[in-house]
Design a protein around this nucleic acid. Structure first.
Length: 423
RNA sequence: GGAAAGUUGGCAGAGUGGUCGAAUGCGGCGGUCUUGAAAACCGUUGUCUGUAACAGGACCGGGGGUUCGAAUCCCUCACUUUCCGCCA
């Protein structure tokens, strides 16, 4: 959520920045500013009456104690009027605030200055490409066929147990999953992240704090009996650990990593591109979350990007880094890098990580602050990134490393899998 | 699932209608003392809103009510703890 104080003082700049992500509802910005003005004037009107009422009440108390009942009664008779006036003003205020809230949550984050303008994924900037796309033979198999051939991932079995998008990993397939999770967690720990295990069901407040609610409600599984949501990413519980907290400058940077399963309804996604492991309702992911000082959040973003790349390099997967254009960026992000690996058999890039700086967009909702050197409260900057999401990594590992008699496990994973070949 | 108790400032913990934004202790910050530190002593120490600055307003789990006046009384919801039951 954007800060109203900023919108108020930088109307034109806000509109200009929003245009980078093709958000052109200038009237919404102006409505918000107008509502804010009304709220402020209504509030000050009701407050000055409250001040009078408070003074009168105090006076009554004093007079009663002095035994001057008569005079007290006199004032009492008059102070009844305050109540009605304040009540009316507060009702008006409540309505205005509700309307204001409904509108301000519709404003997405302002893109950072480096974010390219653009409408679709075609306008994303390719920052770099690393590694060679292997020239797989024409008869190279896509991962879903390899999965069936070596009996390591069973999509049909998942359909029986749950439904489409909930695969069952078997034998070496399951083992590979566990190996990747452990590898990613160990790497993160070596890089200064603290490992945490968090709830995978979250309440509505947490969903609001990181921005999934109210705008992406339909993307989360909802457990009605207990009014809880299944997490779409560990970002939600891990970031919300700091909701309402007041931090110290010396606490920065706060680096947490967590492995969790992630659940996404993916309503409305169909077609060839969702085959196999490309898009699932349940998948595993190791997530990084950092809470940092606003002054260096963009250095931290670069650092996280570099770290994620180091994982891909260790797995020897060809990848590229995209700087997302305004139109392709998430609602809450100020700048995002996507990492994509090359799927040789599918001949397309697959997104495996997304690293974002949210600046104060989340922390303004979370009310996560720190007391600065100036003695004042400031909102922190929050960042997160996948490191990494498993399914597409698995897909690429299978496809890129397929050989005649099996699939070669990447060297760095062998200590974790305990085997070198899936055959 | 049943029963009871509770929810107050960073923490602990008083406060049952006006003098309470809130005692006291711990912690934090500043100072005195000390070569330095500890101890002791003195001072200070919530957040939001608002103003050029004062002032003012709001907040004692959330919401509502009674009252001139609510942390305090009433209603309601949520959560926590303990006991019983069940159980990985």
């Amino acid at each position: 959520m954007l800060q109203i104080s900023y919108i108020r003082e930088n109307r034109d700049k806000v509109i200009e920045r929003l245009a980078v992500r093709n958000f052109t509802q200038i009237e919404l910005v102006d409505e918000i500013i107008g509502l804010d003005e009304q709220i402020r004037s209504t509030k000050s009107a009701s407050e000055s009456i409250s001040a009078e009422a408070n003074a009168a009440a105090k006076q009554i108390g004093d007079l009663m104690r002095q035994g001057k009942r008569e005079e007290a009664e006199e004032i009492k008779a008059r102070s009844g009027e305050y109540k009605e006036e304040v009540k009316l003003l507060l009702e008006k205020l409540g309505g205005l605030e509700e309307e204001f809230f409904q509108k301000i949550v519709q404003l997405p984050n302002l893109p950072y200055k480096d974010v390219p303008a653009g409408r679709t994924a075609d306008d994303n900037q390719v920052v770099l490409e690393h590694g060679h796309k292997l020239m797989l033979p024409d008869d190279a198999l896509p991962h879903w066929e390899l999965a069936a051939k070596y009996d390591i991932i069973d999509f049909e079995l998942g359909v029986k147990v749950s439904g489409a998008g909930f695969p069952v990993y078997k034998g070496k397939g399951a083992r590979l999953q566990r190996a990747l999770i452990n590898f990613f967690l160990d790497q993160a720990t070596d890089n200064g992240y603290r490992e945490v295990q968090v709830p995978i069901l979250i309440n509505g407040e947490s969903g609001f704090g990181t921005g999934q609610l109210p705008d992406k409600e339909g993307q989360m599984y909802y457990v009605g009996a207990d009014d809880l949501y299944l997490i779409p990413t560990a970002e939600v519980p891990v970031t919300n650990m700091y909701r309402g907290e007041i931090l110290k400058e010396e606490d920065f940077p706060i680096k947490n990593t967590a492995y969790t399963p992630c659940f996404r309804r993916e309503a409305g996604s169909y077609g060839a591109h969702v085959r196999g492991l490309n898009r699932l309702h349940q998948f595993d992911k190791v997530e990084l979350v950092q809470i940092v000082h606003p002054d260096n959040s963009y250095e931290v973003l670069e650092e996280m990007s570099t770290y994620v790349q180091s994982l891909l390099q260790k797995l020897k997967l060809p990848y590229r880094v995209l700087r997302l254009c305004g139109g392709d960026m998430g609602f809450t992000s100020a700048m995002t890098y996507d990492m994509e690996v090359w799927s040789g058999a599918q001949k397309r890039w697959l997104e495996v990580s997304s690293v974002s700086n949210f600046e104060t967009y989340q922390s303004n909702r979370l009310k996560t602050r720190f007391k600065g050197m100036d003695g004042k409260m400031h909102l922190v900057h929050t960042l997160n990134g996948s490191a990494l999401a498993l399914p597409r990594i698995v897909a690429c590992i299978l496809e890129e490393n397929q050989a005649e008699n099996g699939i070669k496990v990447p060297e760095v994973l062998v200590p974790y899998t305990g085997f070198e070949w899936i055959d």
